[in-house]
Structure formats: C-alpha cells, structure tokens
Design a protein around this nucleic acid. Structure first.
Lengths: 155, 155
DNA sequence: GCCGATAGACAAGTAACTTGTCGAACCGTA
DNA sequence: TACGGTTCGACAAGTTACTTGTCTATCGGC
C-alpha cells in the first residue's frame, strides 16, 4: 500500500508505519492460508488473541479493541463460524455468553505467533536486534495512553 | 485501537506499527475537521498527495496506491465531490481523464502536511530527533521492495 | 487495417466497521 | 421488594474502502 511522494516528513512517517504493518500482516496472512487457515482475516487473528487474553464477552472484546460491542460481536460470530471459538452461557450472569478459544483456535494462534515472530526475526537480522528493540521501545512510548476523550466512555 | 496481550513479540510489533499509524492519523483527522475539512477521510489525504505527485489518471493512481483502478476511480470521484480535484479530458489521449488538484485540494494538503509534521515534531521532542530519524531509516529499509508476485502485474 | 493492451464506466459483492434500537438481566438503593 | 439505571447481547440498516467481473472506446505497433 502506497509508495507516493508526500512532501511532508510527517505524512511519510505515517505511511512508513502503515507500510510496516502491512508488510508483516500480508506475509503472515499468505502463509497462514497455505497452512490450512484459509478463511481467516488479519483482524480475526488479533481478536482471537484478545479473547484468549481474557476478553471473553463481546462487550469486553469491544472495549479492548476500541470498537463497538456490535463490531466485536460480529467478529466473534465470524470466529465461531470458522471454529476458532465457541460460546456458552455464563452460569453466573444470564446476560453474558462466554467466549472460549477452541483447540483449532489455539492452533491458529500458535502458527500465527510463529509466523509473526519469524518476520520479526528476519527484521532483527537486517537492522540488528538491539536496533529493533529500540525501535519497539520508542513506538511503545509514542503510542501509549492516547489521551482520553468523552467519546471513549460511550456504549 | 488494540491494547491486547499477544504472547508473541512479532504480533506485538505489528500492533505497535498499526497503533503508531492510527495515533498520527486520528489526530490529524480530528484537527482537519475543525479547520473546515469535515468530510475528508484519511485515505483521501494520501490519495490526493499521490495525484499531486503525478498519478493524474485513475489507472495510474491505482498502480501507485496498489489498488485496482476501480478503487482509485471511486476515490477520485469522492475527491471530486468534495472539490479537492477536478477532471478534464486529456487532449492527447481520448481514453484518459486528467485529474488535477484544485486550490481547495492544495489547501487540504498544506494543512494536512502541517498537522502531520506537527505530530512528528512532538514525537521528535519525546524520543529525540536523531532517534526518530533512525527509526524512520530502519522502517524505510524494512518496508522497501516488498517482493513482487504475479498478482502485481494484473489489471 | 487489424489486434492486443489500456483507460475508464458500470454493477455487484465483501470486510470491517458504524449508529440506532430493543428486550432481558443485573444491581444498588430507597 | 419494587424501582431505576446500567449492562448484556441481538437485530437491522448504513458507511467506507475496497474487490471481481464485464463492457466499450481508444490507442499503438506491426
């Protein structure tokens, strides 16, 4: 995506960041398809990780991914259709449906992690592991705590 | 957008890159709306820059942005509707319609560049200008020439 | 003067969201 | 224990930024 001239170093930086993301994700996505996970979309992978990390209801997943609960519910429905998660009623709260990662979902996460780490390792070889570590540390600092607004409290 | 645990440093890196992009774009987008460019979507800004940089037909714009010519034509139609570009027949080739950036389009680019540069400058203050330069240089290396495939030749 | 390549138009489909609305369930308080 | 506000998930429709597929008009080399 995007190789344009920009005449703005700020806009160029934005494109570099997006390009970096796409470079990683495209490669992982292609390789996942070859290994028996054809239908899966990049967004599904990240959502599945969030579910596994504890976002086991649609509302909670929405909050973690900063999307509406409806969007999260749609993602969960897709993951369920592909057999990556299943849903069961929460015994302690009849409103909730608890989302659990299935063995097949766990397999996707394992392969996905390996593929992402693979790309990262090749990057480490190209610019040096300590340089990559510094890059990550800087990015983490620059993106943390993206200032709350009133909108973040809705829904 | 996304604060999930991942248990994979590769996947975390991908999220950092996407988060960085979003952090920049969201801020610019909000500020643009305040300054009289309400309808504009983030993608439009980058497309407009590509047009200005010489991608003055739908097909060419598609190639530069790595999307289909149809997608590029839709983007151009949106830009035209908002008054950021206009189209006129190419005198030398009756198939082509030449896309030109209007004064209002140029204003958008100017403001957009300033806002992006503003974010970048604040980042430079936070981690140091030379560190940011290194980060950009590394990203540029890691994303350059994302290996051609047969698909790139179609359409 | 044909023929393959290219430009753009039109149509329909898709992914990943959004807003808005709703009923059911939960929970603190009066 | 009844109420009132909050939260949960479901359903419906709309939006953005794409895609694939098909079509006609035009161009350029031989």
């Amino acid at each position: 995506m995007i190789v344009a001239m920009t005449q703005s170093s700020g806009a160029e930086l934005a494109l570099l960041l997006l390009g970096g993301f796409h470079t990683m994700v495209d490669e992982v996505h292609v390789e996942l398809a070859k290994r028996g996970h054809e239908g899966v979309r990049p967004a599904h992978e990240f959502a599945l990780r969030a579910v596994d990390a504890g976002a086991d209801t649609a509302s909670e997943l929405g909050r973690r991914l900063s999307v509406t609960k409806q969007a999260a519910a749609q993602t969960i429905a897709a993951l369920e259709e592909f057999g990556y998660v299943n849903r069961e009623p929460d015994p302690g709260d009849a409103r909730r449906k608890r989302v659990r990662v299935t063995p097949r979902g766990r397999e996707l996460m394992t392969i996905g992690s390996a593929l992402f780490d693979d790309v990262r390792n090749r990057w480490a070889v190209r610019i040096g592991p300590e340089q990559l570590g510094t890059l990550e540390a800087h990015l983490a600092r620059l993106t943390e705590r993206r200032s709350f607004t009133a909108e973040d409290l809705q829904d």
